[in-house]
Simulated scan of single mutants.
Amino acid sequence: MHIPKIALPIISCLWMLVSSVHAAAAAKSETRCGWFDNPTPGNVWLHDRDGEWTIAIQGEYEAQGDWPRFNDSQWMSVNRSYGYGCACIKAVVNTMTRQIVSISSANARPLSACRKDPALKEPEG
């Protein structure tokens, strides 16, 4: 197949436009609320109404940004200092890999906020 020389710059521009629109859509922040589950060192997930989102896997992956800070009444301790709490996280996510890419803000919530939501299943302790 022969592509005229004049078409190549047009195709290139269209490809860059499509790529930049896709990248911009992928980089949109969203707020996700649910169970912030940290059962073992370096392993963290957020379980919300859409399912499980990976925040960190020890030695493999960790989202950029600060995790929520919980006080004693907001944290269910399991396995010493590990456990889970209820949180809302504003983050850039990758919906294909179900990973949280970067966290711009993270706020702990009362445990009752997640317990009252019928779409959320409390992690096992």
Rank of each mutant, 00 (worst) to 15 (best):
S19R: 13
H47R: 09
A63D: 04
V92Q: 07
F36C: 06
H2N: 14
D72C: 05
L46E: 03
V44F: 02
P39V: 00
H22N: 15
S29A: 10
C88D: 00
S77L: 09
A7M: 14
M16V: 06
D37S: 07
V21N: 15
R109Q: 06
S104I: 08
E60T: 15
A108S: 03
V78M: 14
S105A: 07
W75M: 04
T40K: 13
D117K: 08
I103C: 01
G34L: 10
G65I: 03
F36D: 06
A25D: 14
T54G: 10
N43T: 05
T97G: 07
V101P: 04
T40N: 15
A108F: 10
K121A: 04
D48S: 00
W75R: 10
H47Y: 15
A23I: 11
S104Q: 08
N38A: 13
N94F: 11
P41W: 10
T31V: 04
A63G: 04
V44K: 07
D37V: 04
N94L: 12
T40Q: 12
V101S: 00
C33R: 05
R32L: 13
V93E: 02
C33M: 09
A119F: 13
H22T: 12
G42S: 09
A113S: 13
T31E: 10
D72Y: 13
K121T: 08
I3V: 02
I57C: 05
A25M: 14
E122N: 06
E62F: 15
T95Q: 11
G59P: 01
S112P: 12
R69Y: 12
A24Q: 13
I10D: 05
Y84D: 01
V18K: 11
S77C: 06
M96D: 10
V93G: 02
D117C: 07
M76P: 05
C114M: 02
V101L: 03
G42H: 08
A113Q: 08
M16T: 06
W75H: 06
A24C: 13
Q58P: 14
H22Q: 11
A87M: 02
I3E: 04
N43H: 12
M96F: 15
R32A: 11
A25Y: 15
V78C: 12
L46D: 01
Q58S: 10
T40E: 15
T54I: 10
S29D: 08
E52Y: 12
N94A: 09
K116D: 10
M1Q: 12
L46W: 07
W45H: 11
G42F: 06
V93S: 07
W35A: 03
R115Q: 05
G59Y: 08
R115I: 01
I103L: 07
A91P: 03
G42M: 12
T40A: 14
N43L: 06
T31G: 03
T97R: 03
A119S: 03
R32K: 08
S19G: 09
P39G: 00
H47C: 09
D50I: 09
G51Y: 03
G65M: 05
F36H: 05
D37H: 09
E122M: 04
P41I: 13
L14D: 11
I6S: 09
C33F: 02
A7F: 15
V18S: 15
C33L: 05
S105V: 00
G42K: 07
V21K: 11
M96Y: 10
S20W: 11
C114Q: 07
G65N: 01
D117Y: 03
D66H: 06
K28C: 15
C88V: 02
W75F: 01
